[in-house]
């Protein structure tokens, strides 16, 4: 650096910046962004407030311990809550092992050929298929051909199909996030492919897979259309005791109440929505917590 640096500052004004105008532009976009955010949040809050106000007085113990009824004051969500749990148990039992195994195969074993690429594209596409299409498929395959009837099991199979792509995609991402250096370290010690997958890839990918599975479960719990299609929209005043029993689930129970004439049923529906929202928010929170806490550090 020399003394004659003044030439830099004193030369011709080639920068014609209007700081004021630039500052206004910057502010403008901040305000616009904030408004967009508020629009979403406020709408959500208004909806939520409306639901909470409607549901006041209905969310009592009796609401959780009663079956549906023609009389609003005697109606409850026992069958729907239990039906959701029962269906989700079998859904996850089917979808998680199949999804995780598919992901392991695709990531670790399958070569990079046209067949795997074909499968890859299809899984991505399946994740975007409207849920009612899964309902139609379930109706034909599980309810009719496999003669499961309008049962819990038919619902679980349909839902498992619906969330399988989500689980596969999430699991593959989790597996891919395991650094190659871990695999190399394992192979260099004389571990086989399976030992490497079993002792390193899977454990390190587990938190990611778990997060994916929980988010997929949340998606399935909120789904209504495919279950209506396979015929779960019925009056169920009992607890399903067998996988082949008829059943109902939370969103369908809510739908059912909303479509009745008396306004009391609409308030009941609001109470049901609160329960559903609490379940979904809880699941999402668990997923976020797992993602933050259990993330493997290498």
């Amino acid at each position: 650096m020399s003394e004659d640096t003044q030439t830099v500052g004193r030369s011709e004004p080639i920068f014609k910046a209007s700081m004021q105008w630039r500052r206004i532009k910057a502010h403008f976009f901040v305000v616009l962004g904030l408004l967009s955010v508020l629009l979403g949040v406020v709408t959500l809050l208004v909806l939520l407030a409306d639901v909470i106000i409607q549901s006041t007085g209905w969310l009592d113990w009796q609401f959780f311990t009663s079956f549906d009824s023609r009389f609003p004051e005697r109606a409850g969500i026992k069958a729907a809550l239990f039906g959701t749990l029962y269906m989700m148990f079998f859904t996850m039992l089917l979808a998680v092992p199949i999804g995780v195994m598919s992901a392991i195969y695709l990531e670790e074993y399958a070569g990079d050929n046209w067949f795997t690429q074909f499968i890859q594209v299809n899984i991505a596409n399946l994740a975007g298929v409207p849920s009612i299409v899964y309902g139609l498929l379930g109706l034909q395959v599980f309810v009719r051909w496999m003669e499961m009837g309008r049962s819990v099991l038919a619902g679980s199979c349909t839902m498992a199909l619906l969330i399988l792509p989500i689980i596969i995609v999430a699991s593959r991402e989790a597996i891919r996030a395991v650094p190659p250096s871990m695999r190399e370290a394992s192979f260099a010690l004389g571990a086989s492919k399976w030992e490497t997958v079993r002792h390193h890839v899977l454990p390190y990918a587990l938190p990611g897979m778990l997060t994916g599975a929980i988010l997929a479960a949340a998606r399935a719990i909120g789904e209504t259309a495919p279950l209506i299609t396979i015929g779960a929209l019925t009056f169920v005043p009992f607890l399903p005791e067998h996988p082949l029993d008829r059943f109902t689930v939370l969103p369908i129970q809510i739908f059912n109440w909303v479509s009745r004439a008396q306004s009391e049923f609409h308030e009941l529906a609001a109470a049901g929505i609160i329960v559903l929202l609490v379940v979904l928010i809880a699941l999402n929170s668990v997923a976020i917590y797992l993602r933050q806490r259990l993330r493997t550090k290498y």
Binding site: P179, M182, E184, A185, L189, G190, Y298
Partner: peptide, 19 residues
């Protein structure tokens, strides 16, 4: 190759202990 790698160990550029 699994047996080969047991008999010929390897240390990498970036330390890569298992977590």
């Amino acid at each position: 190759p699994v047996e080969v790698r047991r008999r010929i160990g390897m240390v990498f550029q970036k330390p890569n202990p298992f977590p």
